[in-house]
Write a protein that binds this DNA or RNA. Structure first.
Lengths: 278, 278
DNA sequence: GAGTTGTTTCTTGCATGCATGATTTAGGTG
DNA sequence: CACCTAAATCATGCATGCAAGAAACAACTC
């Protein structure tokens, strides 16, 4: 029952205290393996973060079903807590949560894609000059280092690391603006972008590593606010242009999906839960 | 116990079904007074909307305590539902929700104020050209009408209506961009601005009605994207500049607050719950 | 009398039970 | 054999009970 949550390889899977009352503080040898960090961070935060991580790393594709009982069991908490995490994800447009229906990882529509990129251009273009005004050489150096690490990752073929660093570039830049509001928006939009890319990424793009981050950093270092902001906008436009926004394989006949493989029974789903049928 | 929720003058106060099971559909003459609209809109949405409305109308000042049981009773639902509404408000920075503590309407700090206005400039300046590109004469006319209504309200001294229309100008403009993401951000930021204004509004500002909305519309109609966006930025800057960002009366000695009036007992709080003490 | 400590009274955090509605499965019919 | 229908199963929505923690109150000491 837990095996379909492989995308969350978070170790601290507490064995779900006995059906009786958890006896929170009494805690024998069973529940005491809790890092101090985990004790402080509320459980719903952990679930939220785990799902975000999984989405950013593309381990959790759009359409995946997220049952609250399952999630709760995995993290050793009740449905209530899992539900809270899902609720927050739903507010941020990362999971789709319709009443009485199983929560699923969102599948952003084409329209939504347009909106998300438009918003990213607005927010991130604004962030660039803010960072430039408030920041010293040291941060420029940090950015340069990040870009180098990213390029190195792509160069050695480590796409996973490359993606992570690429995401890191945007979020770190956002953090540098010292504006929690804007930083939150960027994080949210980056997550949604991750879903979008998972759905619509053009296969051609693999061969198309982008040096645009380096370009942005260079323009930031050069001190030309206008040029730097424009570089950011163009980078995001390129990213969007590289998508193949065809009307996502809406429901390509179940046969086409499961054709060769044989249909799995409900009680033994594939490693990744099957994408939501519709 | 309910009397301190006067700011929510929402009529449908269901008398909280009997302590026994609600028997949802059976519903005698008691619970059947439910508009079809109310039946569809989930209860937590209604609570959320009611609180937002109250904040926008300045009926609900920063620091007001929002107990979930109280809220739940008022709307005829359980703590669970009220809690969900509070959770959402907390995500949007409108209420402050620290663990094990009563939720209170947020009191944005000075730093936060800066962030909110910076974000508004970024988002709303971006919205202006988007609207200009996608919109026909009819919408320009609608904007003009809104501004006229607003000015009229201020002219006749109806500040409540003026504020409402002023808020409406920003949110309607945001809606015109046909971008749900950006529209959501604007709604959120406008709400937070409302709290900020409630905290820091300079008394001088009452005498300072702003014709800047009219200016923005004029520049939009004129078709100069750059000028229009700049007008929006300047409008927001003026708004921020008009605040008196002194370190909010942190804790002006209890005596100063309750000095003349005599202290109310806990069971009979003043009409508006006293601002959170700290 | 001011400050501090102990006690009482709230209020929230979380888990769970029941009911509703969705989804799936099985069965029946043209 | 496809399509529709009915029953069973499953997952969530909501209310509530219990425990932990905070706030308010009271008493006590210096």
């Amino acid at each position: 029952m837990l095996e379909c949550l492989h995308f969350l390889h978070r170790l601290p899977v507490m064995p779900r205290k006995t059906p009786a009352r958890p006896a929170r503080k009494v805690a024998g040898a069973a529940a005491r393996k809790m890092t101090s960090a985990e004790r402080k961070v509320p459980a719903d935060e952990r679930i939220y973060a785990a799902i975000c991580d999984a989405i950013l790393d593309r381990r959790l594709p759009p359409g995946t079903r997220l049952q609250e009982i399952q999630l709760g069991e995995f993290f050793g908490v009740s449905r209530t807590v899992a539900h809270r995490a899902l609720l927050r994800l739903a507010h941020e447009g990362i999971v789709s949560l319709r009443p009485k229906r199983v929560a699923v990882v969102a599948r952003p529509s084409i329209e939504e894609t347009r909106s998300v990129f438009e918003a990213r251009r607005a927010v991130e273009a604004a962030i660039v000059p803010i960072v430039m005004r408030s920041v010293g050489k040291d941060l420029a150096a940090e950015l340069r280092a990040m870009v180098q690490a990213e390029d190195a990752a792509y160069a050695r073929g480590d796409r996973a690391a490359g993606t992570r660093l690429s995401v890191g570039f945007h979020t770190r830049l956002a953090d540098m603006a010292s504006n929690p509001v804007l930083a939150k928006y960027v994080r949210e939009l980056v997550l949604r972008t991750s879903l979008i890319v998972a759905l619509y990424e053009s296969p051609a793009r693999a061969a198309h590593p982008h040096f645009e981050h380096a370009d942005i950093v260079a323009k930031i270092a050069a001190g030309d606010e206008r040029a730097a902001a424009r570089a950011m906008v163009e980078h995001l436009e390129a990213l969007e242009a590289n998508l193949e926004l065809r009307a996502s394989e809406a429901s390509p006949t179940l046969a086409a999906i499961f054709g060769a493989g044989g249909v799995h029974s409900r009680t033994a789903p594939p490693v990744f839960a099957a994408p939501e049928r519709r």
